[in-house]
Design a binder for these strands. Sequence first.
DNA 1: GAACAATTCTCGT
DNA 2: GAATTGTTC
Length: 551
Amino acid sequence: MGIPNLLRFMKPFIEPVHIKKYAGQRVGIDAYSWLHKGAYSCSMELCMNPKSAGARRYISYFMHHVNLLRHHKVVPVVVFDGGSMPCKSATDEDRHKKRELSLVLGKETLKQGNTAAAIDFFRKAVQITPSMAYQLIQILRSENVEFVVAPYEADAQLAYLATLDADQGGIAAVITEDSDLIAYGCTAIIFKMDRFGKGEEFIMDKTLMTVKDGLSFQDFDQNLFTGMCVLAGCDFLPSVSGIGTKRAYSLVSKHKSIDLVLSTLKLDKRYSVPDDYTGSFWKTLAVFNHARVYDVKSKSLKHLKPLEEQYLDYLAGDLDILGPELAPSVARAIAEGHLNPVTMETFDKLSRTISPIKFIDTSALNVVNQYGSQENLTQESSITLCSSQESEDDIVAFPVDEIANGERKCNKGGLALGKFLLPGATKKHSSPALEHNKVKQKNIPENNPFKKRKLPTDQGQAQDQNDLQIDLDDEEPVVLCSSLSRESVGRVESQDRNEVSAGLCRPSLQESVESVLNERSSKRQNLPKAFRNKTNKVNERSGIMKFFVRL
DNA sequence: GAACAATTCTCGT
DNA sequence: GAATTGTTC
């Protein structure tokens, strides 16, 4: 649960920020926070029917945020949690039991027909599984989004990446909800980033220099700062009863030495300090300083900060509290998303939905399962996602504040959909063999909502003049329509010609879009059922109209 | 006033 | 995971 109350305590040093500040830079993402939020929208589906399309809404949520970053020219680096730390297992187990209970209660309540109450239970029951992370990883692979699975804590991995230069794979900031990043000494953190890219920023160096609201960390160094966090209580070590963030700050601020704080604390009769607290304290501090992380360059485990002699003493040679050492091959297989860090089994072997497509050489998959270094793994593993049919759940809206505020013209589409399309997939197809070639197109996961492509039109079939057309050859595609100007529409989201397609447009163009749609309303009875049920409504809050067209 | 315990919320319509 | 609310010291 991070450091209790730390975020509120540090509030004076946290300022509003927009993600566009990091345009052109690499930014790390704590995958867990977005996975968890995303799962909230489909907790019942995840509990009752994890294979369903609806249960994949958490992926849509995640990719929306990834796409938002890309839109602002920020390079996302997604970091997943790996194995849990030995010293944390008690809390983990406790949470697990509570979730299981909620799951049972949820299913029971659903049986009784009380859906609303059941959803409440499912929300409490939902947990992020390695399988869910793996599903996302496959999408990230197919989207060429950089990711890494930390050997243990994602927080430590993120803090490590933040120490590296960009050309060494480093990141300029971290997006997370977890206050532990502060304790890890991360240089720049963005908390509570919303769907428009607004968030709250914490800059460590600035904090260590500024005096604000009677708080000063000027005499603090990183070690004292992290010491203060540990003192206030963290996942690895609960605080001494009666010590919270404020008293932890006062103590460190007064003594300016961890040793002194601990010894005075022990003598203070108001507090009962456990006998082994001092020892545990230094070990915990060692975790924050020297946690095991994965080094992409050497493809092996490293320490967040190099181990110094003094810490070897504190640890008494017991490096396993940092999590067991892993062989480089194992560390790499975990980091690259081939090996489940909890069960240590290969993901591909566990995958339930191996594609039925016949031309796939399954022996190749088996080779991959040895988690070797096949370069083409991405392509093949993504095939395992071919399972569910397209559904409305896969239609995703792309929120862009600038469009909502009318700040930006949409003449370039505003959205970098082009980047989500495979090279070569955007050209207009004319081969008569295409219909029979459909199998080849399945190299792209069908339920990947971020890789929608225009399907070839049937041979010789003329396109309706009024139909919207998509120009996918553009770097940033826009939807074209004979009755609308080129800058009218931001994005088309479903491109299956038998499916409804959704788009967004600026408020000023709503009228013209609507007039075109009205013209065609007489034909509506000929349209697929899903389309007839759609209304073209303006979102009152965003001012964006979402419209549906047949392609 | 500070810490603690219990409870609510995270999405998206 | 955090934020919030009510309770305890």
